[in-house]
Design a protein around this nucleic acid. Structure first.
Lengths: 230, 230
DNA sequence: GAGTGGTCTAGACCACTCA
DNA sequence: GAGTGGTCTAGACCACTCC
């Protein structure tokens, strides 16, 4: 490319920050100035700087200008694939096994988390995902029937609830939490570990257009690792 | 705002995808077409669609057009602040306590992870971060002296190693892993939990310009949660 | 070859925030 | 009030990829 690309500009700005030509806290030249320097239009410089701002390297304010972040907020990005894809991507064989599926009222702990009044109808699904025949993830899920009525007809022996939901109620918003816990009796027997031994838990709440759909607790054996690069 | 903003367009496109007006796999109208429909310029529509593509809702290809993703790859983004900021952001009082700091050769387990030959000099720092006087994070860190020689003069009684490193070797690359484990004797006594009880561990390897700087293991009590919104 | 997205330009106006 | 970033427009050319 002959003309200066916004990525070139971003790279050069990043370099100057890295070598402390612009130290943390320092104010960068304005967009207009940089545009002249790089022989580009202001829009192009703007694109580059917005990208730096999105990655936390600089902070921008109208009137005040752009500053190099004093404490760069680093962001980790994790890809959250379907379990099946996750397992198969590692080269292992994926298997799925339904443990139970029943209509039930949610216990108060669940309905409270979903901010639903008592008495709402739910499907409670428990299942196990395996990698090369070994337990990989134990899934305990509550699905709010009123939010996705079609779910009542689904046979979860043949398709995992997450897979079905992603395909039929996609693009929802979610809240995700990771933590360590001691294995409950159910989790321990499903994963083949001792009760109380450390397990890695992911908990996810999902809404579609502000209506709560599902609460799921996904438990992994302690060998499980979530890895990312920054 | 009177004119149509790219965020408005994004929202409308997102809505149509959510209500399956455009089902997964379907091809969206071209940018030019949508620009006419929304009464905006193509650049504005482009901005909206690039955002959707970045979030994995659609896939774009030249000539082929934009399609609704069949298997939306969802990405979780976690902010990784300094412990101090993390604690203070929660409204708690932050305290820091150095447990030990000594020059040492790294055990093979550590040097292997950092891909450094034997005999390299390290500083081994162990410290504790507290929130409202309660143990929040136990940090066990190895710092490769050759990568950041100035570190030899730092007094880690007054500043945490992470804080110092972020300020003095910023914008490095890192590999981050989360997992659950049973507390080691050291971890248990530092955090005030029983040995073997579940703890949440974050492990980070950091490089500056491809040279390994540091390996750190950060252990949290089981109450710790990493939370994000998608 | 042709259609679609990727990006750049030049100019403009607006919105926020500091002084 | 004034300076800086945020965004929009209209037009243009390019690059990739499918046919």
């Amino acid at each position: 490319m002959n003309r200066t690309s916004w990525k070139d500009i971003r790279e050069e700005l990043e370099r100057r920050i890295a070598v402390r030509e612009w130290a943390p806290g320092a104010t960068l030249p304005g967009e207009e100035t940089l545009a002249v320097e790089f022989g580009a239009s202001r829009a192009t410089v703007n694109r580059a700087m917005q990208d730096l701002a999105a990655r936390g390297l600089i902070e921008r304010k109208r009137k005040a200008g752009s500053k190099v972040s004093a404490n760069p907020v680093r962001e980790a990005r994790f890809v959250i694939p379907l379990v099946k894809q996750e397992v198969e991507a590692s080269g292992a064989r994926y298997d799925y096994s339904l443990l139970s599926s029943e209509f039930a009222e949610a216990p108060e702990l669940v309905s409270a988390r979903l901010q639903i009044g008592p008495g709402a109808r739910f499907i409670h699904v428990r299942c196990l995902h395996l990698a090369d025949r070994a337990p990989y993830q134990y899934e305990d899920r509550w699905i709010h029937i009123a939010a996705v009525p079609e779910v009542e007809l689904v046979d979860f022996r043949t398709i995992g609830p997450n897979e079905w939901l992603v395909a039929n109620a996609p693009f929802s918003t979610a809240e995700y939490a990771f933590f360590a816990a001691g294995a409950s009796a159910d989790e321990a027997s499903a994963l083949g570990v001792e009760p109380g031994s450390p397990v890695f838990v992911g908990e996810r709440l999902t809404w579609l257009a502000r209506r709560p759909i599902t609460l799921v607790r996904m438990t992994h054996p302690p060998t499980h690792r979530v890895i990312t690069r920054l």
